[in-house]
């Protein structure tokens, strides 16, 4: 199941592995993505802290970790083809995979229906 933050990150948790990216709405707001700065593997990231930086033609934006974890893998495909974030933000355009503790609380994250309702309020 995909969960979302109010800052438009998404997270998909599978056991103790969590994949993070930005939502379709976020990529549309950014416009053409031209650069993604990814963290080094092994880096510990606290919840709500910077996990990556995404740069569009006009601006740089931080991508925050929806939950705490340790960087296990980054999406190296984004280095050569940052436009993947625009083309498939919630699939091939993922940013990082975190190793997260089992049973991490995700109670403050939104499911897809709740996130869609949230977008309607913006």
């Amino acid at each position: 199941m995909t969960l979302y933050t109010k800052d438009h990150e998404w997270i998909r948790i599978d056991g103790n592995m969590a994949t993070i990216g930005i939502s379709q709405y976020a990529q549309a707001q950014l416009g053409d993505v031209v650069y993604v700065e990814l963290p080094e593997t092994g880096k510990a990231i606290d919840k709500g802290k910077e996990a990556a930086v995404v740069e569009s033609v006009k601006a740089a934006s931080e991508v925050y970790a929806p939950i705490a974890g340790t960087v296990f893998e980054v999406n190296a495909a984004l280095t050569d083809n940052p436009a993947l974030v625009n083309e498939d933000p919630e699939g091939e355009g993922w940013f990082v995979r975190l190793h997260v503790p089992q049973g991490t609380d995700t109670g403050d994250l939104m499911d897809e229906a709740t996130y869609k309702a949230f977008l309607e309020t913006l």
Partner: peptide, 8 residues
């Protein structure tokens, strides 16, 4: 995600 810098 948060826009860090934007002229607008």
């Amino acid at each position: 995600m948060s826009t860090e810098q934007s002229v607008d």
